[in-house]
């Protein structure tokens, strides 16, 4: 090896941190800020919502009443009450019915698209599902209001068509494309070798699907359902317009209900910033944020579980 004295100074001239080097550093810092912004925003959402709802939780909220009383009467002059049970029941019943509708159909559709459909059919179906996902929620609400409503009144001979059934079906149709897409991804992620191995053993197509593909894709399918639930749970405009928006503990699918999300949307405009009612609406927001956060986190764990092996 040469002694250090032989190191040519010319070599070091080439080793300057030139403009390109600095530009790269600056860009790296900028895009890093962009990446971190996602964290800042999600924390920001949490901070601002709890910040505005916190006063209610500490000063006015009766936890027992909040979760067990169906009396949501924030505008009562002498004695406003904040029982969210009916709202929770409304959200739960609508989301539940939506899942009843959407889960079998989206999983069925995902299986058909991933395992049976080929070529053009497959392409067309995928595009249709994608377009289905693109319809804005206010349009869905309008469909519930103007098409489903008279349809339900006529078919079931009930006085009001804006109810759990209406909102549930609408919500089911809204959540279905998401679930279909994620479930199909999960099915497609099952290695082709699994299928071939099972077929080589003489299994028929549907045996392969039920005994091999579905179990292998289980985590992804659970994640798909969870994300569908999250979507239905958080949906606002469609539920506001199609559920009837009246406070009720539903006993049948033909009862009108009111959802957590819809309550915020309907009442926030009529409250004074900082008032008790206003803070109570933000408290509902905290609840929504918390639940969807948990759902998303769980779904992510399931998807990760699928990727690991």
């Amino acid at each position: 090896m040469d002694s250090s004295g032989a190191q040519a100074s010319g070599t070091f001239d080439a080793d300057r941190r030139n403009a390109s080097w600095w530009v790269d550093r600056v860009v790296q810092a900028l895009v890093f800020t962009g990446g971190v912004s996602a964290i800042v925003l999600i924390i920001g959402i949490f901070v601002f919502i709890t910040g505005h709802g916190f006063g209610f939780i500490t000063d006015h909220m009766d936890v027992g009443e909040f979760f067990t009383s169906p009396k949501w009467r924030p505008t009562s002059d002498n004695n406003p009450t904040y029982g969210a049970l009916a709202l929770i029941a409304g959200t739960a019943s609508v989301t539940g019915l939506a899942m009843l509708v959407a889960v079998p159909f989206s999983l069925g559709a995902a299986i058909f698209i991933a395992e049976f459909a080929k070529g053009k059919t497959r392409e067309v179906l995928k595009v249709l599902v994608e377009l289905l996902a693109a319809i804005p929620s206010v349009v869905w609400g309008f469909i519930g209001l103007s098409i489903m409503n008279p349809l339900i009144i006529e078919t079931f001979d009930v006085p009001v068509g804006l109810n759990v059934l209406n909102a549930g079906v609408i919500l089911g149709l809204m959540a279905a494309p998401i679930m279909t897409t994620i479930a199909e991804d999960a099915l497609k992620a099952v290695p082709e070798g699994f299928r071939e191995a099972a077929e080589a053993l003489g299994a028929t197509r549907w045996q392969v699907i039920f005994k091999v593909v579905l179990p292998a894709a289980r985590n992804g399918l659970v994640a798909a359902v969870l994300l569908g639930v999250g979507r239905g749970f958080g949906e606002t405009m469609a539920v506001l317009m199609a559920s009837g928006h009246s406070i009720n503990l539903p006993t049948s699918p033909f009862d009108s209900v009111r959802a957590l999300t819809a309550t915020i949307a309907a009442e926030l405009g009529e409250t004074a910033a900082g008032s008790e009612h206003y803070q109570a609406l933000f408290t509902l927001g905290i609840l929504l944020f918390g639940v969807t956060f948990v759902i998303n986190l769980t779904a992510d764990l399931f998807i990760r579980g699928r990727r690991k092996p």
């Binding site: 990446g35 971190v36 996602a38 964290i39 925003l41 999600i42 920001g44 959402i45 601002f48 919502i49 910040g51 505005h52 929620s137 994300l227 999250g230 749970f233 958080g234 949906e235 606002t236 405009m237 999300t261 915020i264 949307a265 926030l268 910033a273 609406l281 933000f282 927001g285 929504l288 944020f289 969807t292 956060f293 759902i295 998303n296 986190l297 779904a299 992510d300």
Partner: peptide, 24 residues
């Protein structure tokens, strides 16, 4: 954590985004 934040940002209900918009 960034990836989780993005997933949650996409999953937060639109009305919660509205509350955030009002508050922030």
């Amino acid at each position: 954590i960034i990836n989780l934040a993005i997933i949650n940002l996409a999953g937060v209900p639109s009305i919660v985004h509205a509350l955030f918009g009002v508050g922030a």
